[in-house]
Simulated assay, not measured.
Amino acid sequence: MNVQIMVTINGSNKVDLVKVLSEKTHALDGKWLNSKISHIDDYFAGLIKIEISPEHVEELINEFKALGINVEAAELDLVSQQHTTHLNLNIDAKDRPGLVSEISQVLSENSIKIENMECHRLGAADIGAVFTSQFKIAVSDNFNKEQLINSLQEIASDLFIDLRDQS
């Protein structure tokens, strides 16, 4: 019986890296179930969920490490997932120190799981630096949308909040 592993990779970006990683996985009869790879400047980071036979796990990880990238892997428990709703949360505001910390604190206090987060700092001539962010979040069935919005608005009066279902 195959196992599922979550592989975390990062390092300097190389041409055809994704192609090489997928070829090495396929050569050992593994399958990519899900992946997320991002680049900032010439640096990349990624998560790859792979199904593979247990006897090939160590060989695959060693093949990945031989490419000169940082690699970590963990075997996943095959646990049934609880029902969650997936939402998009966009927040824009005048930038200031600690904003990401305060937003993540509110999300944590509301038992919200952050699935993906992208934050950017943009220069605006008239008002200075602007913080813009996009979160993909997972919420439980008893989630209270109004409570979350009210809690976020307590952070600062200039937050623009957009919360909607993922489409």
Score class of each variant (00 low, 15 high):
residue 21 L to Y: 02
residue 110 N to F: 05
residue 65 K to A: 13
residue 52 I to E: 00
residue 43 Y to M: 10
residue 35 S to A: 05
residue 160 F to R: 13
residue 131 F to M: 01
residue 9 I to Q: 00
residue 155 I to T: 01
residue 82 Q to D: 14
residue 38 S to L: 11
residue 48 I to P: 00
residue 44 F to V: 02
residue 92 D to S: 13
residue 76 L to Y: 03
residue 136 K to S: 09
residue 166 Q to E: 11
residue 28 L to C: 06
residue 137 I to N: 03
residue 50 I to R: 02
residue 80 S to E: 11
residue 6 M to C: 10
residue 30 G to K: 03
residue 122 L to Q: 08
residue 104 S to E: 12
residue 96 R to Y: 11
residue 78 L to W: 07
residue 129 A to E: 11
residue 146 E to N: 15
residue 20 V to L: 09
residue 23 E to D: 15
residue 2 N to P: 14
residue 73 A to D: 06
residue 8 T to L: 12
residue 50 I to F: 07
residue 110 N to V: 06
residue 163 L to V: 04
residue 65 K to H: 12
residue 68 G to A: 04
residue 73 A to S: 13
residue 126 D to R: 10
residue 72 E to T: 06
residue 163 L to R: 08
residue 90 N to Q: 12
residue 101 S to E: 14
residue 42 D to V: 09
residue 141 D to M: 11
residue 22 S to A: 11
residue 122 L to E: 10
residue 25 T to Q: 03
residue 11 G to R: 00
residue 54 P to N: 12
residue 66 A to P: 05
residue 43 Y to R: 14
residue 37 I to Y: 00
residue 136 K to G: 08
residue 146 E to T: 15
residue 150 N to R: 12
residue 18 V to L: 09
residue 126 D to H: 07
residue 53 S to H: 15
residue 16 D to C: 14
residue 159 L to D: 03
residue 79 V to L: 15
residue 42 D to W: 04
residue 60 L to Q: 01
residue 45 A to C: 08
residue 104 S to M: 13
residue 78 L to C: 02
residue 115 E to Y: 06
residue 40 I to A: 09
residue 6 M to S: 12
residue 22 S to K: 03
residue 108 S to C: 08
residue 23 E to W: 02
residue 75 E to N: 07
residue 73 A to L: 04
residue 149 I to T: 13
residue 83 H to I: 13
residue 147 Q to K: 15
residue 124 A to R: 07
residue 76 L to P: 07
residue 45 A to V: 12
residue 93 A to E: 02
residue 119 C to W: 06
residue 139 V to Y: 02
residue 137 I to L: 08
residue 129 A to V: 05
residue 55 E to G: 05
residue 24 K to L: 14
residue 138 A to F: 04
residue 108 S to T: 14
residue 76 L to C: 13
residue 138 A to E: 14
residue 55 E to M: 08
residue 158 D to R: 06
residue 115 E to N: 15
residue 29 D to I: 11
residue 9 I to G: 00
residue 2 N to S: 09
residue 129 A to S: 10
residue 79 V to H: 13
residue 53 S to Y: 14
residue 133 S to G: 04
residue 17 L to D: 02
residue 143 F to M: 11
residue 102 E to L: 14
residue 121 R to A: 06
residue 36 K to T: 03
residue 133 S to R: 02
residue 128 G to A: 09
residue 85 T to A: 15
residue 133 S to I: 02
residue 165 D to A: 10
residue 134 Q to C: 05
residue 92 D to P: 00
residue 114 I to E: 10
residue 93 A to S: 15
residue 163 L to W: 07
residue 123 G to I: 09
residue 5 I to M: 11
residue 126 D to W: 04
residue 147 Q to V: 13
residue 112 I to W: 07
residue 27 A to I: 08
residue 36 K to C: 09
residue 99 L to T: 01
residue 117 M to I: 07
residue 98 G to M: 05
residue 150 N to Q: 14
residue 40 I to W: 08
residue 15 V to I: 11
residue 47 L to G: 01
residue 49 K to N: 12
residue 93 A to P: 01
residue 67 L to G: 03
residue 105 Q to N: 15
residue 42 D to R: 14
residue 107 L to H: 08
residue 143 F to R: 04
residue 29 D to M: 14
residue 2 N to I: 04
residue 43 Y to T: 13
residue 84 T to A: 10
residue 111 S to N: 15
residue 135 F to E: 00
residue 102 E to C: 07
residue 126 D to Q: 13
residue 124 A to Q: 13
residue 14 K to C: 04
residue 87 L to Q: 11
residue 157 S to V: 08
residue 161 I to C: 06
residue 51 E to F: 08
residue 21 L to R: 00
residue 129 A to F: 11
